[in-house]
Design a protein around this nucleic acid. Sequence first.
DNA 1: TTTTCTGCCTAACGTCTGTTAGAAAAACTG
DNA 2: CAGTTTTTCTAACAGACGTTAGGCAGAAAA
Lengths: 198, 198
Amino acid sequence: MTETPVKPRHKTPKAAAARQEILSVAARKMRQVGYAEMSLRDLAAEVGMKAGSLYYHFPSKDALATEVMRLGVEMVQQAVRAALQDCADAAPRDRVIVAMRVHLDTLLSASDFSSAHIRCYPFVPETVRAELTAVRRAYDRDWNDLIAAWLGEPPDAARVRDMRHALLGALNWSLEWFDPARDSVEAYVASLTELLPQ
Amino acid sequence: MTETPVKPRHKTPKAAAARQEILSVAARKMRQVGYAEMSLRDLAAEVGMKAGSLYYHFPSKDALATEVMRLGVEMVQQAVRAALQDCADAAPRDRVIVAMRVHLDTLLSASDFSSAHIRCYPFVPETVRAELTAVRRAYDRDWNDLIAAWLGEPPDAARVRDMRHALLGALNWSLEWFDPARDSVEAYVASLTELLPQ
DNA sequence: TTTTCTGCCTAACGTCTGTTAGAAAAACTG
DNA sequence: CAGTTTTTCTAACAGACGTTAGGCAGAAAA
């Protein structure tokens, strides 16, 4: 009896494409209406399926939501890391500003996955949250390093954490008010920049 | 046929007390688990009633949630206004700091109503949100005035709005991470103070 | 005491939910 | 083409949801 790996169960391109579309639609739904309010029947209808068919690709609604949110963290993290590599030699304060801009842009226009994560995390079942702590902590560490380098010595852990909470709060809260027709990521980042001590 | 006023339908002290406890428990529930996840059966059980009995005090779940959230805005607004009156002659920047501290303290320890509002607003039915725009705008105006006085002339509306979004974002986001056993409102406000230009 | 009103309960309605088993269809493979 | 595997559908289950109608106990009023 061969041990079939649990993760990559479906290998055909069609299954992979269907799974991918389910994830995309789920991310958009979660962002728009929330986790509890997203029904699998509505979700399936938007993909062109029936609710039961989703269970060929995901074992449960929780597992689907977990995957959406996990991808959400990895997407911002990857975008921010890539941008930081492109300005590796810049001043620490400028690197913070770059990270803010990329984080914000990912949330507001690039990735429904990332915004779905941020909006739904507080209300998702505890088992789902538990599976996300690792990726979340990893992204938090990136920001801690970034901010510690900016604040310089001595690295006061509590102070770094407060700064991270303040900055990410100011960024993530934009999901509540940002209107692409009226607001601009660049303009908001410029305003935030004036709050960062030189 | 006498026109019975719609608002103060129940006048006896017992009904008023019951209504008050329903609101309190609903606020706590909404803060903890969210709007969709708060079932009227669970809510009623915690009050010591059955689900149907809630309808003697409120015409619908939406109406109950609306009342909770409306009270939530009014509570922070009132707390902040009272504190600002006590330091009417202070420097504009210090008044901003006072407002931040009071807003934060209301969210994190004083009022489940306020935190329920902030956490649930994005996912509440559109009809509920519509009934809250007026109170929300009023509170936003308070902050706009406060920040405009701090930034001084010329009062750039877009800049004031950005600052309000940044500050309230940094404050409201604390609902996602604040742990009373580990964190302190005063310490976080102190960290935020260092971000405000002199 | 009788009557009226208040506050809550019981029991149910209709609808929606996530989920499952098994059949059908569609897509590959020989 | 037949045979096999992959993907989707059908149909239902069991339970939860918000909501409603009518009744019942206790307090208040007469």
